[in-house]
Amino acid sequence: MDPIKYFIFSMIISILGILRILLNRQNIHIMSMSIESMLLSVKSNFLVFSISSDDMSGQSFALLVPTVAAAESAIGLAIFVITFQFQGNITLESINSIQG
C-alpha cells in the first residue's frame, strides 16, 4: 500500500475546505460543510497513518472524529435555529449582529 496518494488526497480535501471558508464567508451552511470536509481529511489521515504504521491508535482516534463532527453539527444547528427565530434569516451578518 502506497500511503502517499492518500495523504495527497487528504491534503487536497483539507485545502479545498480552507479555501471554501476563506472565499465564501457569506453562506454559513457552506462554511459548516467546509469544516466537515476538513474533519473528513483528518479522519482519513488518522486511518492511513494507522494502517501504514501497523498501530491501532490511529483507528481509535478516527472513531473520535465523528463524535467531534456530531457535536459541531449540533451546536451549529442550534445557532441556526435560534438566529432564524430571532431575525428570520440565517446569514453571517445576522449572526455577527447578535454578538455586538
Score class of each variant (00 low, 15 high):
51 I>P: 00
9 F>I: 13
12 I>W: 03
66 P>N: 06
62 A>V: 13
12 I>T: 13
59 Q>G: 07
10 S>P: 04
65 V>T: 06
52 S>L: 13
48 V>R: 04
28 I>N: 01
57 S>G: 03
69 A>D: 01
45 N>P: 00
69 A>R: 01
56 M>P: 04
49 F>R: 08
36 E>F: 12
95 I>P: 00
83 T>G: 02
77 L>V: 12
32 S>E: 09
53 S>P: 00
22 L>S: 09
36 E>G: 03
2 D>Q: 09
99 Q>K: 14
12 I>V: 15
19 L>Y: 15
5 K>N: 08
72 E>T: 08
81 V>P: 00
47 L>H: 05
8 I>P: 03
88 G>E: 05
64 L>Q: 10
61 F>H: 12
90 I>Y: 01
25 R>S: 07
98 I>K: 12
84 F>N: 11
95 I>E: 02
7 F>A: 11
80 F>A: 10
6 Y>I: 12
88 G>N: 06
30 I>K: 08
81 V>N: 05
36 E>H: 12
68 V>R: 01
10 S>Q: 05
14 S>H: 07
78 A>G: 14
100 G>M: 13
47 L>Y: 08
60 S>H: 08
13 I>W: 00
51 I>Y: 12
66 P>K: 06
85 Q>E: 13
26 Q>I: 06
63 L>C: 08
16 L>K: 01
